[in-house]
């Protein structure tokens, strides 16, 4: 069973890395999702697959049954899933805002914060590169 989990971890990890290297933001987000699930599989596999019975202590007993599964990794994964869900939701909204503002989610086109022509040897060239990048933008959404 651990072997299968390890294999799944490897497949998820390589797919995640492949997607993360894409230029499209949408693909990168899918990559992050897969990476989060790869991490979950890693935690489950690290906790060892001990058995299949639910980890509940029966009434009257004071220990788990013999083939109970390991509850701790499940608790960890549950936390990790919730966190990963929240953060992915944020990144999706962020990329939607980028798309709405620029009409593209190609990461090569996201050069506003790091405009071409920087760093420059002359301060005036640097200032020009900054204003050029700012001028190409649609108006800001928030008040300044």
């Amino acid at each position: 069973m651990e072997f299968l989990l390890a294999l799944l971890f490897g497949v998820l990890l390589s797919a995640a890395i492949y997607l993360l290297m894409a230029r499209s933001l949408a693909r990168s987000i899918l990559g992050l999702l897969l990476l989060g699930n790869a991490a979950n599989i890693a935690i489950i596999a690290s906790g060892r697959v001990l058995g299949w019975a639910p980890p509940l202590v029966a009434p009257g007993a004071n220990a788990l049954v013999a083939d109970a599964s390991n509850p701790l990794p499940q608790a960890l994964v549950l936390t990790a899933i919730v966190i990963s869900f929240g953060l992915t939701a944020y990144v999706m909204v962020l990329s939607w805002a980028v798309w709405r503002g620029k009409g593209t989610v190609d990461t090569e086109a996201l050069r506003v914060a790091e405009p071409r022509g920087l760093p420059a040897a002359d301060p005036r060239d640097a200032a020009e590169a900054e204003t050029l990048a700012a001028d190409l933008l649609p108006t800001r959404t928030g008040a300044r």
Binding site: L25, L94, V98, A113, R140, R144
Partner: peptide, 9 residues
């Protein structure tokens, strides 16, 4: 700001 969205990504 747009610049901020860019950096935030």
């Amino acid at each position: 700001g747009r610049e901020q969205l860019d950096g935030a990504v």
